[in-house]
Simulated assay, not measured.
Amino acid sequence: MAHNILLIGGHGKVAQLLTPLLLARSWNVLSMIRSADQKNTIESLKQGQPGKLDVLVSSVEDVQSEADAQKIIEQVKPDWVIWTAGAGGRGGAPRTMAIDRDAAVSFTKASIHTPSVKKFLTVSYISSRRNKPSWWSGEDWDSALKVNNEVLPTYFQAKVAADEVLTVLSKERFDAEAKKGVPENERFHGISLRPGALTSAKAGGVKMGKITCRGSVSRETVAQAIAAVLETDGARGWIDMLDGDDDVGAAVKKVVKDGVDSVEDEDFEGMKERAAKL
């Protein structure tokens, strides 16, 4: 099936590696970019692939509400949405919150509230969580706390808020569709893909699921993982990943088959309360 994908943050490094992988699967991609001078770079990614590639010049900084995001969803008419946008540390704390939290939450809500959108995948990061998971060591948790509280405090607050909104609202829609008798593979699937520190190394193997948070992962591997997650029926929830020895596609299938969701040990009721305020 030729899916129509809205790729938000299309000029980013991971998104540029991802775009040809999506097109190679005969999926159609609408790459949303910040400025017109990025357009030629994006259009060069098609490289004879069977999927259709279009470009939308529209800055995520202009998306300040669910209604703003909804206008873009209605224009593009995707059935899958991928969020890879981010402030990238530029513009200080206000810009990080405006993009990584507010615009991300706006697109998350608009996507989940649009019945024709069936999947929303956000690229988060492995330490974006409030509670220590049972499979992490004390050293793992100390490392995560240092990143979240000292190194990237504003980024953490933005990303974890967006992750929680996705988690809460996607579960609500998934459960509501289940009550209506919608088959599981046709229900909405919300996915938070959570890589470790990103590198420019060549793509390799991975480890996924309930793993340590200490480590890195190639951007090429992350791009491969996004494509693999999207094409794997049943993939949803939080998927942690680092460089490792497992084949990407096989690792995704195992996580899905085993029902592994790294959101485990988070406080879902607390999530609901916080998400309701955004």
Rank of each mutant, 00 (worst) to 15 (best):
I42D: 07
S106D: 13
K277L: 07
V260R: 01
S216D: 01
V55N: 10
L53A: 10
P78Q: 04
V60A: 06
R187F: 01
I126A: 03
P133E: 01
V60W: 06
V255H: 01
E139W: 08
I73M: 04
Q64I: 08
T41A: 15
P78G: 01
S216P: 05
K277I: 05
A24Q: 12
F188S: 00
A203R: 11
H113D: 14
L193Q: 15
I112K: 04
Q64V: 13
H113T: 12
I112V: 04
A235I: 13
V55Y: 08
T199F: 06
G234H: 14
V29L: 07
V260S: 02
L121H: 10
L53H: 09
P183F: 07
P183L: 11
A67T: 12
L166A: 01
G89I: 15
K52Y: 07
E177C: 06
G88N: 06
G86R: 15
E220Y: 09
F107M: 07
D265Q: 05
A223I: 05
A223Y: 03
P78D: 00
V248R: 07
D246P: 03
L121R: 08
Q49D: 14
V206R: 00
A93C: 01
P153G: 08
E184T: 11
D247E: 05
K277Y: 05
T84D: 12
N149V: 09
D258Y: 07
S262L: 02
Q64M: 13
N131C: 15
L56K: 14
G190C: 03
K277D: 05
E177S: 03
T221A: 01
P133R: 00
V168C: 00
A203W: 09
